[in-house]
């Protein structure tokens, strides 16, 4: 960050102190620190994970953005790059990992599959987009996205972080400091706990087609 970016505009700093003193806002310093050391989770699902590793490797070198420290533990990371096809069988594990991450936490959906099912959308074991369960911050298109595209997506995430204010961020407000997503269950098919009443009503409706009254009962 150059002094011009760091300093707040309305304060004059004497010339002899310009290399020593900076007058800035807490938000700027706070966000600068956060966005320059985003640790991604070492978490690959499918093909996109290989491009994520390629982005880490020498040619593209994510270390330039302070993102080279990939942590296998969700407790230690700031961003979850959902890199690949999300399957129903894997989904409970992904949601659990997200719940285990400490705030502030971000989700980057990498590739067509994670963003909306991609070429495998019609598959019986495929979840059509991770955003049905987790709040996604940045979508990176491509199948798989090139490392450049991923780097661009992560720069967009940095820009997003820059715009946050310490006064408004969720994790410094009163109330629960983290949003827990209910963990889906593997039954006869994938059951989303948030949609149980809906599923019940619909299944009842399918069992007795001319009984629309049951829908309102649920």
């Amino acid at each position: 960050m150059t002094p011009n970016e760091l300093n707040s505009p309305d304060y004059d700093i004497p010339e002899e102190l310009q290399n020593v003193v900076a007058i800035t806002t807490l938000d700027k310093i706070y966000n600068f620190g956060r966005r320059s050391s985003i640790w991604p989770m070492m978490f690959g699902l499918a093909c996109c994970a290989i491009e994520m590793i390629a982005a880490q490797a020498s040619r593209y070198d994510l270390a330039r953005f302070g993102m080279e420290v990939m942590r296998p533990s969700p407790r230690q990371c700031d961003v979850m790059i959902v890199a690949g096809t999300v399957t129903k069988k894997m989904l409970p594990a992904i949601v659990r990992l997200y719940n285990q991450m400490a705030e502030p936490k971000y989700v980057v959906s990498m590739g067509a599959c994670a963003s909306g099912g991609g070429p495998f959308k019609e598959g019986y074991n495929v979840v059509a987009g991770i955003d049905k369960f987790l709040p996604v911050d940045v979508y990176v298109p491509g199948c798989p996205p090139t490392p450049q595209a991923l780097v661009y997506g992560l720069i967009k995430l940095q820009e997003k972080i820059d715009k946050q204010s310490i006064k408004q961020v969720r994790w410094y407000q009163k109330g629960p400091d983290s949003v827990e997503v209910p963990i889906p269950m593997l039954g006869p098919d994938l059951i989303d706990p948030r949609r149980i009443p809906e599923i019940k009503a619909k299944a009842a409706e399918l069992a007795n087609p001319p009984a629309p009254a049951e829908e309102s009962a649920a």
């Binding site: 099912g117 959308k121 019986y124 495929v126 979840v127 059509a128 049905k132 039954g187 006869p188 098919d189 994938l190 059951i191 989303d192 949609r195 149980i196 599923i199 019940k200 619909k202 299944a203 009842a204 399918l206 069992a207």
Partner: peptide
Amino acid sequence: DNVSFEAGFDPE
């Protein structure tokens, strides 16, 4: 969504 349950399935 990409799910199907048999008619009358009660998740509760």
